[in-house]
Design a protein around this nucleic acid. Structure first.
Lengths: 205, 205
DNA sequence: CGTATCTTGGAATGACCGTTCCAAGATACG
DNA sequence: CGTATCTTGGAACGGTCATTCCAAGATACG
C-alpha cells in the first residue's frame, strides 16, 4: 500500500558529501542541499531526520567510500615502504589537483569544526583514526618483514607519526601547499625509518 | 573635539579570540561577540569593519600572542632537541588540559574552515607556517651544532615534517586524544633523527 | 477501481543572521 | 559654555536559517 521513495538515498548522500566536503557543515544550508540533490526538504527530513543527521550519514559514507578503500589497499599491499609512499602520493594528488583540489579531507575538516563536539561524529573520527593507524601499522609490519626498516624502528609509534602527519598534509593542502613540497615532506618522514641499503642494493656510482 | 573610544580594542580582540577560537568563525554570531566583549554592535563595526574584519584582526592577534612567542622561544633556545621536545610538550599541555583544552589551535582550525578561502586569512596562515617551520629549522640547526642529530639528517625537510606533525597534533587534541599518546607520537618522530649516543654519554648499565 | 499509506512539493514558521541607521551621549577645543 | 565631531546604544532592516506542517500526488494491495 505505501508509496516508496522517489530517490536513491545513497546517491543523495553522495551529492550531500560534495556540498558538506566543500563548504563545511555550518556554512551549508538546507537549501543548498535541496538544490544539489534535487530532493525536497520534506524528503530530506523524512529520510535523515535533520541537518546534523544528514551530515553524520554523509560523513559516514565519505569514510566508507574514500577512506576505507585507501586504508585497505595500504594494509594489504605487499610492497612495504613503497605502499606507504603510494598512499601518500595518491592522497597528495587528490588534495592538490583534480575536481576536489583545495577541499582537504572531509574527516580532517570535521576535526576542526563544531561538529567535532558531537558524540556521534566523534565516534566516526575515532574509528577513522584507528583504521588509518592500523593500516599504516600493517604496511610498516610488511616493510619490516621485507627488511626495509631500521631494526630499532618502533612500528606502533611510527604508524602514529605517519597517521598524524597525514592530517597535517590534508590541512596544508587546503591553504594551497605545493604538491611537491608535501611529497618531499612525506619522503623526509620516511627516510629515517629506512634501513641502510645492503651492498647488492647500492645504486651504481 | 572628537570623542575617544570608550574601550580598548586590544582587550576586545582578546575576548573575541576566545569566542572565535572556541566556536569557530561561522558558528559565532555578532551577538555572541557583543555579549563577550560588552561592546555594542556599532562600536565593533566602527572599529573592525565587519565580522570578517574582526575575525582577521583576532586571528592576527592570536598569532602574535600565542604562536610567535612560542616560535621565538623554540628558535632561540640553545638546548637543541630538548627545546623541540619542550615546544611540543607545552603545545600538548595547552591543547589537552587547562582552560582551552579541546579547543585545538585557532590557526589550525582556520585551515579547515571556509575562512581559509579568504586571501587575507590565507596570508596569515602562510606567514604562520613559515614562522613555525623556520623556528623548527633553527632549533634543528642548533641540535646539529650540538652533535645531537644524525649527520645525514636533512634539516629543512625535517623541519617541514615536524611543523606538519604539529598541525596533526592540534587536530587530534580536538577529538580528545590522550596527552601521553601525543607525547609518545612526537617522541617517535624525533627518535630517528637522533645521533647514536657517544660512549661517554651511554647511561650506566 | 477504491482506498489506505507513505512521499512529496511548497508554503509558513519563528528565530537569528550580518549589517545599517539614527538619535543621544561623551568629549575637547574655542 | 557652546559647538563640532566622534562614539555609543538600540532599534530596525531584509535575508536566511533550520524546521514544521499540510494538502496533493504516487503507490500497491484488495
Amino acid at each position: 500500500m505505501p508509496d516508496i521513495k522517489h530517490f536513491n538515498p545513497e546517491i543523495v548522500l553522495d551529492e550531500a558529501i560534495q556540498v558538506f566536503w566543500r563548504h563545511g557543515l555550518p556554512t551549508t544550508g538546507i537549501q543548498a542541499l535541496v538544490s544539489a540533490t534535487g530532493v525536497s526538504r520534506s524528503s530530506l527530513y523524512a529520510t535523515f531526520g535533520n541537518k546534523d543527521g544528514l551530515y553524520a550519514a554523509a560523513l559516514d559514507r565519505y569514510i566508507a567510500q574514500h577512506s576505507t578503500p585507501a586504508f585497505a589497499h595500504l594494509a594489504q599491499a605487499s610492497a612495504g615502504l613503497t605502499s606507504i609512499e603510494e598512499f601518500f602520493a595518491g592522497l597528495i594528488e587528490v588534495r592538490c589537483s583534480g575536481p576536489v583540489a583545495g577541499w582537504g579531507c572531509m574527516v580532517t575538516n570535521a576535526y576542526a569544526g563544531p561538529e567535532c563536539a558531537d558524540t556521534g561524529i566523534r565516534t566516526l573520527l575515532e574509528d577513522h583514526h584507528h583504521m588509518l593507524q592500523s593500516a599504516m601499522r600493517a604496511a610498516l609490519t610488511n616493510a619490516a618483514d621485507l627488511g626495509q626498516l631500521q631494526p630499532s624502528c618502533d612500528l606502533d609509534a611510527s604508524a602514529a607519526v605517519l597517521a598524524t602527519l597525514a592530517y597535517g598534509v590534508n590541512l596544508r593542502s587546503r591553504a594551497g601547499a605545493d604538491a611537491q613540497t608535501l611529497t618531499d615532506t612525506v619522503a623526509a618522514a620516511l627516510a629515517p625509518l629506512r634501513a641502510p641499503l645492503t651492498p647488492q642494493e647500492q645504486p651504481p656510482q
